[in-house]
Design a protein around this nucleic acid. Sequence first.
DNA 1: CAATAATTGTGGACATTTTCACAATACTGG
DNA 2: CCAGTATTGTGAAAATGTCCACAATTATTG
Lengths: 209, 209
Amino acid sequence: MEKENIPDIVVKRLPVYLQALNQLLREGREVVSSAELGHLVDVSAAQIRKDLSYFGGFGKQGSGYNVISLNDNLRAILHLNQIWPVVIVGVGNLGQALLRYQGFARKGFEIVLACDNNPDLIGTSISGRKISDVRNLAEDLKRLNIQVAVLTVPAGCAQTVADMLVSYGIKAILNYAPLVVKVPEGVHVINIDPVVKLQTLTFYLETED
Amino acid sequence: MEKENIPDIVVKRLPVYLQALNQLLREGREVVSSAELGHLVDVSAAQIRKDLSYFGGFGKQGSGYNVISLNDNLRAILHLNQIWPVVIVGVGNLGQALLRYQGFARKGFEIVLACDNNPDLIGTSISGRKISDVRNLAEDLKRLNIQVAVLTVPAGCAQTVADMLVSYGIKAILNYAPLVVKVPEGVHVINIDPVVKLQTLTFYLETED
DNA sequence: CAATAATTGTGGACATTTTCACAATACTGG
DNA sequence: CCAGTATTGTGAAAATGTCCACAATTATTG
């Protein structure tokens, strides 16, 4: 169960399995085989079995995996048996949309703080949450015990803001800004600039000419 | 240069290199070494050299890579020497934010169509673009010659909508819905449910208890 | 201009990831 | 309750990906 020994690439697949299990739960399914789960998430059956075996034998020969129990186990592994307070830094278009998005709360991430440096925004409310001044960030993060940040600021200041966040104790950053933000050992970042993702896709497309 | 031979993982890194090159361009830098570029994007220098060597020798011993020319080469490789028309399907919170986001246009992706099935939305305008009825999708996609779709619909209908898109000729899908959408051979998908990304991060965090 | 320093491109070593294949075990249906 | 079928967990093999180290080449410096 030591995090050190689990390959990152395995960890990245676990939430996807959880996604599919959620769907099966809603359908009232009781068991699922690695083959069927694999089909749902586009991963080979062997891969799924090997991934899960890093954490223990959750399946049963002959029938497969109990949907409820596998769901519970994955949630525990991913530390999802608690509500994670999240800060959104940067309340531009994307930040506002994420504030309004209901999907976070439904999956155990509560946006408890949104902040910006724009005086026109500070003090206004979006989706029932008041926008704080980024200057109070240190204090706010401590008070609300926040470890997880969503970064939706312009590229120009993203690294500076990330450095601030880290210095105030943030341990995980979901970065929407179009650059790779650098953080010290022990802090985790995922970069999801949508343009980068689209540019990956166009490689595989035929050009117009 | 055959796409077949280039590992996906290499292709995924190219747009990130491009991101860094853009920054260097803005700073007026003329050359960059693999070591420096690697530092900017958190990839080893050897990795960068090997990645680029799939497509040809862009560098020069002793000095490194010319920023302008490497930028041009990568853009050509990724088919970014044209403006790609894009459709946004699903104009909820996320779809609206992406419509307002200026980053796509600046990087060569023009959102030329936004559609939804909500009668209250159809006909209204967001960021200067009129929302179309999803029922006209087949016709609209053909007329505008669109190959790239951003999918921001609820999970419940995402697969159905994806199937429609594919049947109308869409070849690349950026999927924000919280499930893995399945597409036939020859169509490319990237899934970026933000909750999945956050759930990957929490694995590495200490729990409260 | 010669000596030194910097840097690429790459073959091959090493590391990681995926797949295979099968023993072990659990279900199923007559 | 037994024969046949389904399915897991896992060692080992295969495939893929990363890194090292160095020859070749270019730049720089005195």
